[in-house]
Design a binder for these strands. Structure first.
Ligand code: MN
Ligand code: MN
Ligand code: MN
Ligand code: MN
Lengths: 120, 120
DNA sequence: GGCAAAAGTTAGACATGGCTAAGTTTTCTA
DNA sequence: TAGAAAACTTAGCCATGTCTAACTTTTGCC
């Protein structure tokens, strides 16, 4: 859960300047109270900073985790696409797969990707 | 959860003739009461047949689900191995990935596998 | 056949993640 | 700038999956 949350929060901050519970709820297809509860768990875990009724921000630890998650997400999606899978399916499957790929597998995905395009 | 359970139960029945809670507990690294509770949930879901203190068997629905799971497992592992990933990592990652691959992605994995070996 | 060990179950606790209903705070707008 | 709407929180419920402690049943063996 934490991974998907920090990942989305990072994206919202990047695109909107701040992350708001409503948007998180919509994106995940859950109700606002669920977001409130989960955000307070993230806060307890030291991943986010925030006070009641205000926007959500990432702590340094949260930023780091978000970065790692986004990287995994990117690599998995790119890999699935390189296999010829359609974008929607690639995104949907990656959303689950990303939480189970070890660094070893991630490296293998990257390797298998190089032939097609290398935009480091 | 259900997927991993029916998958293991099918394997135990195949190799041992029956599936016993102790073995399931050991395999999953959980305690016996956890298995008891989960098995009764599987029973409530119509996936297994069993009476107290006896071995566990799959219903027809359970068998079907187990078959589907084992197929996904096999394909994912084979695919990861074909990428050059070591067996242990392939097995570990597949155990998580298998629950998130759509039929579309599975087909793509199979396709990408054909070049190396086709043992249908 | 009886008893000890192994296997399994029950009871009760806890964490996670979801919900609805109801209340509070903030924001927008007439 | 007041009042309504939107956003957010709180309280309390539920399901899932895990555990420990204690009890029951089955098994294996002398
Ligand atoms: Mn995800
Ligand atoms: Mn993701
Ligand atoms: Mn699995
Ligand atoms: Mn499996």
């Amino acid at each position: 859960m934490a991974e998907d949350y920090v990942e989305l929060i990072a994206e919202l901050i990047e695109s909107r300047g701040e992350a708001r519970p409503v948007e998180i709820a919509e994106r995940f297809g859950v109700k606002p109270p669920t977001v409130t509860k989960n955000i307070s768990r993230l806060k307890a875990a030291g991943l986010v900073r925030r006070e009641p009724y205000r926007a959500i921000f990432l702590t340094d630890a949260g930023q780091e985790l978000a970065e790692a998650c986004r990287r995994r997400h990117r690599i998995v999606v790119a890999f699935l696409l390189s296999l010829g899978i359609d974008e929607e399916t690639a995104e949907r499957d990656a959303e689950g797969i990303e939480h189970h790929v070890s660094e070893t597998t991630l490296k293998a995905f990257e390797q298998a990707l190089v032939p097609s395009q290398s935009d480091t």
